[in-house]
Amino acid sequence: MGKRRNVRQWALAYALLLPSLVVFAVFAYLPLYRLVHFSLYQQSSRLGGGERYVGFGAVWDVLSGERFLQGTWITIKFLIFTVPAGIALGVLLAMAAHRRLKGIKIFQTIFSSTVASSVAVSSVVFLTLVNEQIGLLRNVSWLSLKSPNSALFAAALSSVWQNLGLTFVIVLAALQTVPEELLEAAHLDGYGAVRRFFRVVVPLISPALFFLAIVLVVYGFQAYAQIELITGGGPLRSTETLLYRITKLQKNTDLQVGASMSLGLFGLTFLVALVQFRLLERRVTYGN
């Protein structure tokens, strides 16, 4: 009796899981296997012309080559421009809007509104500011799309703006969990506003900031539309992030390089998740 019930439960469980497992098998694990395969075999330029084994040496050549390293460096710069600024501005907006005031909901709605804007929309929005022909700020040198030193910064700025809504919403939700008695007690102990912020508030919201850092890094690795729509990868390939370069390598003859770089991107995402976790874990205060 019990056994039959067990078998029925197994069958039901796998029936419920089947659709998800099929999707994951076909669109996550199969492509991972295929990336490894493509990276190890050079495809022929002729259609159906077969493939030639090139081995791990060829993968290493790509991952230590200029194309991959440049793309990685540009991606890291993009992260440097977007992650700390994103967190800092989210904290600023949330600190400003976390208070009892008449009509505060209106301000909170405004600050969270950029959630509605997709990467593509915010890229078009920022064309009105930074485009070299029509942008309002086209003559501001540190935002200029004409210079390899500033173009990436201009593209990154659109991401910072687009992410404002999300960072604000997350930090505000975290601030709302900080008990007011704690702040009052700190106040009575003679803690000034600055010390209260860094010694009481930041430790308490650090799990949320940690989460935010991870999310923003992941978004940074996935940045594409900003580059295509704002800079087109230029000038002088100075804004060609890793993903942007990978998307240009889809022809049969390029697949070996493209797949190797995709695996490199996978490795980086993995590594960052790991490093970030280790590093922040120690400083993050997990309450009970």
Binding site: P31, F38, Q222, Q250, L255, S262
Partner: peptide, 10 residues
Amino acid sequence: LLPIEVTLIA
């Protein structure tokens, strides 16, 4: 850990 961007070309 396998966003569509990583597996895109495959």
